[in-house]
Design a protein around this nucleic acid. Structure first.
Lengths: 178, 178
DNA sequence: GTCTATATACCGATAGAC
DNA sequence: GTCTATCGGTATATAGAC
């Protein structure tokens, strides 16, 4: 119907490129440190296009940090090994952007809190312990700390370790949940 | 020798007041979010006095986040209960300022890494396990995550819990270190 | 549709009046 | 010693030229 890629398609492709650049920039510098200009530079577009497409820096941030479902948490017994294997390797760009900003942006903190509460609820639901909810929150908090120590602080032994080894050491935390 | 409080004493008192205000401001907004003007407002002094006393925002930050020795970690067996009891209650102002900025400021991240490495080294030294260092780093990382979840994300069950209960649940982590 | 130019608002830091 | 005034820089966001 149209010659080559549609105008709408080209516009869509540019928007995608900007969003990915935003995730990288937010992931490296945090909400406050990131700039529209920096995002545009990464995407290879004009700065005004960024706001043309997404309205404001804040709106773009909220799209950029929408958590990805990279974990299948239906199998609780495999939860730890899986999550650690994922968290110790590479962090998805939206997750990295969210974590980088959660201590300085109330909005990012709220998104992270809801995400962790969801995961804690799933974990606690499988248990019959009366303190299951506290145990579950301690587990997700511990994994959060390990992820920060690995990707943002780079503690040496933790950075060198693989997911299975770390999972074996943290395993006892899950025993109390059964 | 001098009438009432010395000029030097008054100057010292003002400097102290500014430093405490800076710890609060950095603790609430992070390095980037904090402003010289905001610190001066909290301290009830003129903005120019802040730089008059401390030279630059960065120099003031480095003084403000100097970690406090609030933990006696010579007794490893009591380590967990003690640290959790402290970390779950109130966070010292310098610690709070350091944690708030560690994800967005490379300098703050470096200070936090060194602090955690020190603590991990002390913990690992008491063990004869060959993976003691990794176990110790996992422990300090977990405590870091719990502290963030409690004071910055405010996970509900964790916020309501007391140190002893949380320590009892996390206790198995230490068993593997012996 | 894309980019240039700019309005508006803070910031850190400095110089100098009092 | 303390504060006023300001410099120079950078940010978001907008309006209009092309």
């Amino acid at each position: 119907m149209e010659s080559q890629p549609t105008r709408a398609q080209r516009r869509e492709a540019t928007a995608e490129k900007i969003l990915r650049a935003a995730q990288d920039e937010f992931g490296d510098r945090g909400v406050d440190g990131a700039t529209i200009r920096g995002i545009a530079r990464r995407a290879g577009v004009d700065p005004s296009l960024v706001l043309q497409h997404y309205g404001s820096k804040q709106a773009l941030f909220e799209l950029a940090v929408r958590p990805v479902d990279d974990l299948r948490d239906d199998d609780v017994s495999r939860h730890l090994a899986e999550v650690l294997d994922v968290r110790l390797r590479e962090l998805p760009a939206p997750t990295r952007a969210l974590m980088r900003s959660m201590l300085t942006s109330p909005d990012a903190a709220a998104v992270m809190r809801e995400y962790l509460e969801d995961r804690a609820e799933v974990l606690a639901a499988a248990s019959r312990q009366d303190d299951a909810r506290l145990r579950a929150e301690l587990i997700v908090a511990a994994i959060l700390g390990v992820t920060i120590a690995r990707h943002f602080l780079e503690l040496p032994a933790l950075t060198a370790a693989d997911g299975d080894t770390a999972a074996r050491i943290l395993e006892p935390l899950y025993a109390g949940l059964r």
